[in-house]
Amino acid sequence: MSNDETIPITIEFSGGLEILFSNQKKYSLALPAKDESGEPANVAFLVRHLCDKVMKDPRKELFVLDDTVRPGILVLINEADWELEGEDKYEVQKGDHIMFVSTLHGG
């Protein structure tokens, strides 16, 4: 059983979300290929992984709410709204570029 298998992906934060992630906009991540129950890693698992393993800021509620990204954050998979790709059930592929964008309101 190859539990240490990982998927290389790029994560990017925009619209101020990077503040929650040590002010770093881009991350190259090796995401475990299987989630906690051995299923292929999907975006829901990625969000949990980011929250538990990458995010150092204690204000988790500014990133996740009710086990998914909070309202006001767009998830973009390879330059497309995740709604076009199956939302959090999308299975993460090698080389994916996944972006989290917080909406802005200033004007």
Partner: peptide, 20 residues
């Protein structure tokens, strides 16, 4: 359609607070 739910108010930053 794009933002069905509003963001939590504490996550909303104005230009006065955040700068522009």
């Amino acid at each position: 359609c794009v933002f069905p739910k509003p963001p939590p108010p504490e996550s909303v930053v104005s230009c006065g607070d955040g700068g522009i």
